[in-house]
Design a protein around this nucleic acid. Structure first.
Length: 294
DNA sequence: ATCCAGGCCCGAT
DNA sequence: ATCGGGCATGGA
């Protein structure tokens, strides 16, 4: 991987495993807008990044070396060798090989913790387009205006303090539905430091999971997503309906298997690579509707 | 129209 | 401990 600055843009070349559409649209994040083929706006870190493919390069528009190195390099996990991960998983079995080859351009994004937490609280019993809308509505109502691109306004995700004290009902304007009270509890626990975020790094994944589940509206699945997508816990294995289906289908003879058994299996088989395996499998299962009657 | 969505809470066993 | 109904909202 190498990157240079040209005309105010960062040009990324000689990278491995990075297809913008696959990384953004594999279900791990909701803070993006598609402008065209391999052409997106991503809102994070109070910025609206225009990122697109140009030949064999990826362009981070209007970005300095400093901004690239302090924000986007880590955000898109560009220091990690995904060829190594993909090879390891593909060698595991034919199923993973297929899942990896189907979307070889997925990278696990390192999202901002607060936005990720709220996003996945919203995700429960919801659909991805709707999750994106609610995240956008909250940003528009409580965040700060960043800029307009192609007639579309972009807003930063609000600071926790900005949301502190809001009643759960307030989020109904943003179409959060019954999840408003959950958002309110997450905000309260964040701002009052009930979560003790500073201590996260010293906790085991299991301990951290329990801490996150103390939030009303955060269960095992949401906690695992938050740990994987914003706290670099690649040993987490978020198991939603799709992952449950594909795991049952391929590894348990088609028998509907309890999540606890699936977790034990994933721990043993994937270990610290569980999160990566999960994302390839989730994407694969969802695209082909594996385990459903369709 | 009825069903369901990257689940979780809560009350009943 | 485990199970099932209910839940806001909107698209199929």
């Amino acid at each position: 991987m190498k990157y240079t600055q040209e005309n105010g843009n960062i040009i990324l070349k000689d990278y491995d495993s990075f297809i913008i559409s696959q990384t953004l649209e594999c279900g791990q994040c909701f803070n993006f807008n598609k402008l065209g083929e391999e052409d997106y706006i991503v809102t994070a870190h109070k910025k609206a990044l225009h990122i697109y493919q140009s030949g064999d390069a990826i362009v981070f528009e209007d970005t300095s070396i400093n901004e690239f190195e302090t924000i986007w390099l880590n955000y898109f996990d560009l220091n990690r060798d995904y060829n190594e991960i993909k090879k390891l998983l593909a060698d595991e079995d034919e199923i993973l090989k297929g899942a990896v080859e189907y979307a070889p351009g997925i990278r696990i994004i390192n999202q901002e913790f607060f936005q990720c937490l709220i996003s996945f609280i919203i995700s429960q019993n919801n659909r991805i387009p709707m999750i994106k809308k609610v995240v956008y509505n909250i940003s528009k109502k409580y965040g700060e205006y960043i800029r307009t691109v192609n007639g579309e306004d972009y807003y930063s995700f609000p600071e926790p303090k900005r949301l502190f004290g809001l009643d759960g009902e307030e989020y109904k304007d943003c179409k959060a539905g019954f999840r408003g009270k959950y958002i309110a509890d997450a905000v309260t626990k964040y701002v009052t430091d009930e979560l003790e975020i500073e201590s996260f790094k010293s906790l085991s994944t299991e301990e951290l999971r329990k801490r996150l589940i103390s939030i009303n509206g955060v269960g095992p699945k949401v906690a695992d997503c938050v740990m994987l997508f914003s706290l670099k816990r690649s040993d987490a294995f978020p198991t939603d309906v799709w992952v449950k289906r594909i795991m049952s289908y391929f590894y348990f003879g088609g028998q509907d298997t309890p999540i606890k058994k699936i977790h034990e299996f994933a721990d043993e088989k994937f270990g610290d690579y569980s999160g990566f395996a999960q994302q390839y499998l989730f994407n694969y299962a969802r695209q082909f509707k594996i385990g459903t009657d369709k």
